[in-house]
Design a protein around this nucleic acid. Structure first.
Lengths: 126, 126
DNA sequence: TTTACATATTCCTATATAGGCATGTATTGT
DNA sequence: ACAATACATGCCTATATAGGAATATGTAAA
């Protein structure tokens, strides 16, 4: 079988750098397609197609305003991605913790807690 | 041009559902390929190829142990994705806030703050 | 209505898979 | 050394783009 369709889910849709760019640009507020074209530096049909993909997976909302179409990022649709990646947080925190512990061990316990400049979020249960 | 390579970055690598499955499976601890094959329910060559992609973008680490290869998720490589999606958090919180405000308005202001059950993170400046 | 403007859609091509199957390779057991 | 085990790779095919060019569609202005 071939690769999964980009329209199948947000993960695939977001895999394209241009679409991430568009989502970032549209997160602040509504913009019409022409503004996106100018901002992204891609030809209009390509932008329209990317917007089509983003629309199909629900990552953007559209509103018609005269002969313009106002696009806006639907941040709620990005939330599942944030939550999935977040399930790995305790693992990378654990890694950082080990790195930190090694660094402290290398100091032979001297100048203790000097390097702990406000990054207490590294604490975790073993 | 065609679609970007899955080996180009973590975003593309993670777009594949099977690879997300593998990453989740390997997050808890080291596993050898045979275990992944059994857990994912995909033939061995396919799993090896997915592992190859994950390796190239740094999403997994490998260690040789006799004739086995122990794979493990490199959670740190997932962190950038979490942070990118996190940049949209204030926007979806804002949306949730508006939904909440509408719900409260519908109640005509009665039974005020009853629905605010510990989700104070919804507060945001307008 | 005719014209201009803003977008979407269609057609076409080069590229990159994902999965199935067969084979190569490294390491251990006998 | 030889066989078995555990993976990795190579080959092949159907599929799905991403981007470019040209065209269709829809709406507002003259």
């Amino acid at each position: 079988m071939a690769r999964a369709a980009t329209t199948s889910d947000p993960f695939n849709a977001v895999a394209e750098p241009r679409r991430r760019q568009i989502l970032t640009f549209l997160a602040v507020g509504e913009r019409q397609v022409g503004e996106i074209v100018a901002a992204i530096g891609l030809d209009q049909p390509s932008v329209s197609k990317h917007l089509g993909v983003l629309r199909e997976v629900g990552l953007v909302h559209v509103r018609r305003n005269g002969r313009h179409r106002m696009y806006r990022t639907n941040a709620a649709a990005i939330r599942p991605l944030h939550e999935w990646t977040g399930t790995f947080e305790r693992y990378w925190l654990h890694t950082l913790n080990r790195v930190k512990q090694r660094a402290e061990a290398k100091m032979h316990g001297e100048t203790r807690d000097q390097s702990n400049c406000g990054s207490n979020s590294l604490k975790e249960k073993p």
